[in-house]
């Protein structure tokens, strides 16, 4: 009896059920807090036609950027892209579609998606290209846009520690989009640096309660730094 035990031991098992043309939500901000090995498994599987929802699309050769190499991504939903030459090329060649979404709206779309809220109003984007085709409603004299929420077939998440029940904590700013992504996937997979015994994580400090999590896997991470800045000694 597995009960609430969410731990799987192979990446193949972790991403089982991922099929062509699915929508994948991915945590991370830049290269910080990205599910490196789950992305790697999508590359290995060769799944194609994916819609990927993530704040950014990695860089050439790392992070989500590796999924561009074999043209696995059909559409990206992001707030900021183009840190990679391959992305730019595929976009200009019409092989890749991009839906640019304001960062806060993107976060809220996944939070709402995971919370059973189909859409919400926000002032962000009123009067801009983002507003095209969207309903505008006035509240207290101010215009707001109706923004539909986002749900995914798969959510891939990078945590710091998890227990077998799938309770997760994140480390520092590697949290970013991860807890929102975790709530909005039909199947949510979390890879972590450490799996601890049930009861070891302080219940009051859990970022993602296990109810949102379907699979947990232990990984090792490169944690590449995008902008290495240090103060002069």
């Amino acid at each position: 009896m597995a009960g609430f035990d969410k731990v799987v031991t192979s990446y193949e098992e972790a991403m089982q059920g991922l099929e062509d043309n699915m929508t994948v939500l991915a945590g991370g901000f830049g290269l910080c807090g990205i599910p490196e090995n789950l992305i790697g498994e999508i590359k290995r599987k060769g799944t194609k036609g994916l819609t990927v929802v993530s704040n950014n699309c990695g860089v050439d050769g790392f992070g989500l950027g590796v999924l561009l190499e074999d043209k696995q991504v059909r559409k990206m939903v992001s707030s900021y892209v183009g840190e990679n030459a391959l992305f730019e090329k595929q976009l200009l060649d019409g092989e890749l579609e991009v839906e640019l979404t304001p960062q806060g709206t993107l976060a809220e779309k996944m939070r709402a998606g995971g919370a059973g809220i189909p859409a919400f109003y926000t002032a962000t984007g009123v009067g801009t290209p983002v507003a095209e085709g969207k309903e505008v409603k006035v509240f207290d004299g101010r215009e707001y846009l109706l923004e539909p929420s986002i749900k995914g077939d798969f959510a891939i998440v990078k945590g710091w520690k998890a227990d077998r029940y799938g309770n997760v904590v994140y480390r520092h700013t590697a949290q970013n989009f991860n807890p929102l992504v975790a709530t909005a996937g039909k199947i949510t997979v979390v890879e972590v640096e450490e799996i601890v015994e049930v009861g070891e994580l302080d219940p009051t400090q859990i970022h993602t309660p296990g109810i949102y999590v379907d699979r947990v896997i232990l990984g090792t991470f490169e944690k590449r730094i995008e902008q290495r800045t240090v103060k002069s000694a």
Binding site: F29, G30, C32, E108, T173, I225, E226, Q227
Partner: peptide
């Protein structure tokens, strides 16, 4: 590597800082 700002630069947190999700 887990401690960056919105410009993706490595930073530190001051005493009394808080860290949270994008939402």
């Amino acid at each position: 590597a887990d401690m960056i700002n919105a410009g993706k630069q490595t930073v530190t947190a001051i005493k009394g800082a808080s860290i949270f999700s994008s939402a």
